[in-house]
Nucleic acid binder design. Structure first.
Length: 644
RNA sequence: GCCGGCAUAGCUCAGGGGCUAGAGCAGCUGACUUGUAAUCAGCAGGUCGUCGGUUCGAAUCCGACUGCCGGCUCCA
């Protein structure tokens, strides 16, 4: 708050400005120049976005964003969000407003209590009303207000949802209001300076959304949109959405003949030969890594007495997500997880501490009933397999075992080119089993394993599984989207439920610790992500067809066939396109199928026992000896290279 | 599960209370014999998602169901 003390702001050019504590970023901008003050949208202090009107009370690295800064986007979208609410209120004054979005990195949204769903026509009307409001170019004003004043204000406006929301703000927190024109909303900011700085808006879609995210509560009507400082940026954004659609695995999968879906088994993929090839190649890869690291594969039943699921606790917690069958008047459940079956193998015989760690891997098919509306392509299915494994070890071995799992996982992601990796340590959730001492120890073990190996991670407080903390692995795909893949979870609870024990050095029984580990996660989901990451252009080792032989005319079919045979006997997955079509036609088709290598053969090649090599990158490598290309493809596949 | 949308040929889509439901691509047949992203011609292909209702008549209007899509919620 304004005081006699001063603070020091370090500007991007390295210069330092000394200003009174409580000076606003807008005042700082004015001090630098009127032009900058006019164009300023927002600011940041030590990387934290700050509103132009929020008094600064500490020193730090200071930057101002103008309409031209990409960083201004969050400010602009947040302001467009208020303009959206304003527009809806102007069109339908009786509508109650709820709240906007937390994350404005891409979109904005607002929820309304509206008697029906918004239609496409409504959106058009709202959008043009928003443009009118933007043209008014109102200034966004920030106002600190007491809880009582705020409650009174919103009650007087008939905004009962807002009054409810007010109650969600923790005691003692400064309550701020942002106004533009006659519109006022409870808001933390930050906002742009003026509405007119938002140059391009688009409303994207509508949907229902539960008030406060409560499934048992009221459903409101939500509108999503996006906004930018220029029409060009908006166009680029929409273009990116289009590009993302083109690599959507639900589109590419059928196009590349990888998989299909059928009403007879909703949300359960049918992998065609090419898709199954990739599916199995992924599993083979993990199998190889398992073998190299002392994990032993087991095969366990699909359908087990429901009794087992009572023991494991899954029946109580996840009954609604399980499939059941009754045979011989006996109740069975289709397995949704492998862990209980692994516990049964572990307890099949007396175990010594000398046997530990025991590492069981399992690619068993799992079935989980996902509620309708929750399923999507390969990423959320009802029938799937995980690259699952469970390690049974002594408490002392936990750190080493966790580290082993982490290092295998990192190696695997590298193979796929998932270079950007975020590791999260998820700690005890509110609903959990076991004592606090147990959790203290488990969380400490995981953290120690990561820190011991110098691995950077973030803590995701409260997001652990109910039976133990976990390390989650998030990757970023080729177009920057984040996906959670692998997980390493500590479990002290299942060994307890199953009464697992090993005989220790002291001759007494001890409880083993269980570590759940998946690297790809669900193989189905991983394949979906991989399709989008690669846009269907798989690395040579995963390409169902690695090379297609293209004779330029029927006259060269014999040579083409001989080429294919040579490739095949050299373990290259080769296809011969001997249709009577022009070369361009066949190239186009192979290209659309993203076949890594097109091998053109005509008179010249036949005479010299070569093939004209055209990788799917489109370059022309010219005529190469057949043996060379066989060797090249074989080498790329064997090394699981991503090169062509 | 909730809010909303969609469902016509293998695919992308047009049509629309009425008489024989269309196009392009893909498929098949034939001609062409092809040199780095689509040769030409012909043929075939449909219970207009399923069930029910309204109607003289429904692919078209209404309802239910199923599946899919965008969100919400959930995800051991």
């Amino acid at each position: 708050m304004p005081g006699s003390e001063s603070i020091h702001l370090t500007l991007p050019d390295g210069s330092v400005r000394e200003v009174a504590c409580g000076t606003t970023p807008l005042a700082v901008a004015e001090g630098i120049g009127p032009r900058l003050a006019k164009d300023a949208v927002g600011a940041e202090l030590d990387g934290q976005p700050v509103d132009l009107r929020t008094p600064l009370d500490s020193s730090g690295q200071f930057r101002l964003f103008t309409t031209k800064s990409p960083e201004a986007g969050d400010f602009l979208r947040h302001s467009a969000e208020h303009v959206l609410a304003d527009a809806v209120k102007r069109l339908w004054p009786e509508v109650e407003i709820d709240a906007g979005r937390q994350d404005h990195s891409e979109k904005f949204q607002y929820d309304f209590r509206f008697p029906r769903a918004f239609t496409a026509e409504d959106l058009e009307k709202i959008e043009s009303k928003m443009r009118e409001i933007l043209a008014e170019n109102s200034v966004f004003e920030r106002e600190e207000i007491s809880r009582e004043q705020a409650a009174e204000l919103f009650a007087s406006m008939g905004e009962t949802l807002k009054v409810d929301r007010l109650g969600d703000i923790p005691e003692g927190e400064t309550i701020t209001l942002y106004r533009h024109g006659r519109f006022a909303d409870l808001c933390r900011g930050p906002h742009a300076q003026r509405a007119g700085q938002v140059k391009a808006i688009k409303l994207l879609e509508t949907s229902g959304a539960y008030f406060r995210g409560d499934e048992s509560g009221e459903m409101l009507q939500r509108i999503y949109g996006t906004a930018f400082g220029s029409a060009k940026e908006l166009d680029d954004y929409l273009e990116r959405l289009e590009q993302a659609k083109l690599r959507d695995h639900r589109r590419l999968g059928p196009e590349l003949d990888l998989f299909s879906f059928n009403e007879h088994a909703p949300a359960s993929p049918f992998f065609h030969p090419k898709g199954a090839f990739i599916y199995n190649a992924l599993i083979d890869y993990v199998r190889e890594r398992n073998r190299d690291n002392g994990y032993h594969e087991v095969v366990t039943p699909q359908i087990l007495d429901v009794d087992l699921w009572h023991t494991s606790g899954h029946y109580d917690n996840y009954r609604d997500g399980m499939y059941f069958a009754e045979v011989d008047e006996r109740q069975y459940a289709v397995k949704p997880m492998n862990c209980p079956t692994h516990c049964l193998i572990f307890s099949n015989t007396l175990r010594s501490y000398r046997d530990l760690p025991i590492r069981y891997a399992d690619f068993g098919r799992l079935h989980r009933y996902e509620r309708s509306g929750q399923t999507s392509g390969l990423t959320r299915v009802r029938s799937f397999a995980q690259d699952d494994a469970h390690v049974f070890c002594t408490p002392e071995q936990v750190e080493v075992e966790v580290l082993l799992a982490v290092s295998i996982i990192r190696g695997i992601y590298e193979t796929f080119g998932f270079d950007e990796l975020l590791i999260e340590l998820s700690t005890r959730p509110e609903k959990r089993l076991g004592s606090d001492e147990l959790w203290d120890r488990a969380e400490k073990d995981l953290a120690a394993a990561l820190e011991g190996a110098g691995i950077e991670y973030e803590v995701n407080a409260g997001d652990g599984a109910f039976y133990g903390p976990k390390i989650d692995f998030q990757i970023k795909d080729a177009i920057g989207r984040s996906w959670q893949l692998g997980t390493v979870q500590l479990d002290y609870f299942l060994p307890e439920r199953f009464g697992l024990a090993y005989i220790g050095e002291d001759g007494a029984e001890h409880r083993p610790v269980m570590i759940h580990r998946a690297m790809l996660g669900s193989v189905e989901r991983f394949l979906g992500i991989l399709i989008e990451h690669t846009a269907g252009a798989f690395p040579v080792w995963l390409a169902p067809i690695q090379a297609v032989v293209l004779p330029v005319s029927d006259k060269f079919h014999d040579y083409a066939k001989a080429v294919q045979d040579t490739l095949t006997s050299g373990n290259v997955r080769a296809h011969l396109d001997d249709r009577s079509e022009k070369l361009g036609y066949k190239i186009r088709e192979a290209q659309l199928q993203k076949v890594p290598y097109m091998l053109v053969v005509g008179g010249r090649e036949q005479d010299s026992e070569t093939v004209a090599v055209r990788p799917r990158t489109g370059e022309d490598l010219g005529a190469r000896p057949l043996a060379e290309i066989v060797e090249r493809i074989r080498e790329l596949a064997a090394s699981r290279s991503r090169e062509l």
